[in-house]
């Protein structure tokens, strides 16, 4: 589904990613771990199309297409979803309005008609229950006055409704207490399917207690320095990142 080949990315003159290689197939969950400043967020931004980055080398193909050539809204309509680390507030725009506009733009892209108002409401209310959210959230302005946990749940709600193919979760666990973390994880787990892939960017192992990855990759200094199964995360929990960073310097 996603193939990253020798990807080099800079911000200004400063190289951030220095040759990433990663293959992700449908149905898989990949965790990208690493210390602060290792380039984790840059990777999720570059995949979703945020401006301000320069690709100096390499390529990313997504479902056989050149991902980096698509504007961000086309990537979204093609099924790339980023759950933001810091979801923005949009005063005056209700959550339900944004959801409907987003869903319809995606449907239109695929040649489908706009969603029927009643069907939409049924769909949204079902997902709201799944994430144990209050229906009132739907009519509040997007993220305005939401707590950290509510904002993250709101991201997962959007994901559940838009049903993307490639879900990128950027530090979804940050700012969540244990109850919220469970609910968010259950939401994500319910979306696991054979035709959907997840990339989870996280600093800590604890999210992986709830969402079990198939692969764990450790990012350090802009490169993947180690890949393994779920057990690698536990090893990291125990030893920290320094032994890998040291390794890399030695290599």
């Amino acid at each position: 589904m996603l193939s990253i080949k020798n990807l080099h990315v800079s911000v200004g003159d400063k190289p951030i990613l220095k040759g990433i290689n990663l293959e992700i197939n449908a149905g898989e969950i990949h965790a990208i771990m690493g210390p602060n400043g290792s380039g984790k967020s840059t990777l999720s931004h570059i995949l979703s199309g945020k401006s301000g980055y320069t690709v100096t080398e390499g390529s990313v193909t997504y479902q056989g297409k050149e991902l980096l050539e698509m504007p961000p809204e086309i990537r979204a309509r093609e099924g790339v979803f980023l759950a933001f680390q810091y979801p923005v507030e949009i005063p005056g725009v209700s959550n339900i309005y944004l959801l409907k506009a987003a869903l319809n733009s995606i449907r239109k892209h695929h040649g489908q008609s706009e969603v029927d108002a009643m069907d939409f409401l049924t769909l949204v209310k079902g997902k709201v229950r799944l994430l144990e959210m209050d229906e009132k959230f739907l009519y509040r302005a997007v993220n305005e006055g939401f707590s950290g946990g509510e904002k993250k749940r709101n991201e997962i709600l959007q994901m559940a409704i838009l049903e993307p193919k490639l879900c990128i979760l950027d530090e979804t666990d940050s700012g969540l207490d244990i109850d919220a973390l469970k609910i968010v994880s259950e939401g994500v787990n319910s979306l696991r399917s054979t035709d959907r892939a997840f990339v989870m960017v996280t600093h800590y192992q604890r999210l992986l207690d709830y969402i079990k990855p198939d692969y764990v990759h450790v990012l350090a200094n802009g490169q993947i320095v180690k890949s393994g199964g779920a057990e690698l995360a536990l090893e990291l929990e125990e030893k920290g990142y320094s032994w890998l960073e040291d390794n890399q310097v030695a290599a």
Binding site: P72, E73, R75, H109
Partner: peptide, 10 residues
């Protein structure tokens, strides 16, 4: 960017 990432044009 947030809105575009949800599929809306700028």
């Amino acid at each position: 960017f947030f809105c575009q990432q949800r599929g809306l044009s700028a």
